[in-house]
Simulated scan of single mutants.
Amino acid sequence: MLKAYKYRIYPTKEQEEYFAKVFGCVRFIYNKMLHDKIEYYKKTGEMLNNTPAQYKKEYPFLKEVDSLALANAQLNLEKAYKNFFRDKKIGFPKFKKKKGYQSYTTNNQNGTVTLEGSYLKVPKLKTKIKIKQHRQFEGRIKSVTISKTPTGKYYASILVEEEIKELPKID
């Protein structure tokens, strides 16, 4: 069973700069891919299958951030695009804005995301982030979503795969 735990994190200035860079790149790749899909659809009437890797030559700054964050942005766009074509009432995918709530999701691959004591380790970030872990969890970390609220607070939402405990039979 998948369960998410949300914790407040306290990044340093360098970590905040890295997060701002990742938020910007994720927003950029989402908007660029959406724009290209719209243009391709106008020309051909078909759906374009594009990936973040196609843009890394043209935009080298995309190599500085976690590739899984960019891949998750692509998956979010694909899901929004398919949902629109499945049911028009949902509405067409919207371009991401810089203002307001910002976030990115990265997956745990072979221990790239770990929680050690009161510190969280995420890919491409050399230092560990201070975290206020008010609840313990059991299980394996699947992914982590780093988010920033409009008020400037940072949070980490950790998705954990837990074992389902069977309840005892009652006669």
Rank of each mutant, 00 (worst) to 15 (best):
A73R: 07
F95W: 06
F137C: 03
C25N: 09
G117C: 02
K132I: 10
Q109E: 13
K94S: 11
M47V: 12
N49P: 00
T112V: 08
Q54S: 15
G100Q: 10
Y101Q: 07
N31L: 13
N31E: 09
K82P: 00
H134T: 08
K43L: 11
V122E: 01
Y41W: 13
C25T: 09
N49V: 13
F85T: 07
L115D: 02
K89I: 03
E39R: 14
G111N: 11
Y30N: 01
A53P: 00
F28M: 01
L70N: 08
K56A: 07
K128Q: 14
D66I: 04
K79C: 12
F92K: 06
K32C: 08
K42D: 07
G117D: 01
N49I: 14
L48Q: 04
D87Q: 10
Y104I: 10
K97D: 02
E78M: 14
K88W: 12
G45P: 03
F137Q: 04
Y104V: 04
K121H: 09
A80W: 07
E78Y: 15
D66E: 10
F92C: 05
T105Q: 08
G139V: 09
L115Y: 05
F23H: 05
I131D: 10
G45M: 01
K94V: 06
S67G: 02
Y30V: 01
I38N: 05
A69V: 04
N31K: 13
A20C: 09
Q109H: 13
A53S: 15
V65Q: 04
Y41L: 08
N72W: 05
L62G: 06
